[in-house]
């Protein structure tokens, strides 16, 4: 799967979606749409959130699944929350 770029490779600013197209009828919509906060996270962080939902939000289950200790998984979640809060503030 292709990785969605979220930051400009030239100046590091957040990218916006400027064109959306329908693969069926080839309709193209142009504009300036900000990417949702979750999509602006790294692939690793997105995978973590996905796993978090799949384990019904149980950090203990996640720790067992990831073969990490509970505080390591909790720290990772806290770091992601901090990133999300920062992204929301900069919006």
């Amino acid at each position: 799967m292709k990785k969605l770029p979220v930051n400009c490779p030239s100046c590091e600013s957040p990218l916006v979606a400027s064109q959306l197209s329908c693969s069926e009828c080839e309709t193209v919509i142009s504009g300036s749409y900000s990417l949702p906060v979750l999509l602006q996270l790294s692939k690793e962080d997105q995978d973590f959130i996905f796993e978090f939902i799949l384990t019904s939000g149980s950090l203990k289950k996640m720790a067992a699944k990831m073969e990490k200790s509970y505080p390591t998984v909790r720290n990772k979640l806290d770091d992601i929350l901090e990133k999300i809060n920062n992204l929301k503030q900069h919006k």
């Binding site: 720790a63 073969e67 990490k68 200790s69 509970y70 505080p71 390591t72």
Partner: peptide, 8 residues
Amino acid sequence: KPFERYTE
């Protein structure tokens, strides 16, 4: 870094 991996 055993604290990162092993349970309490």
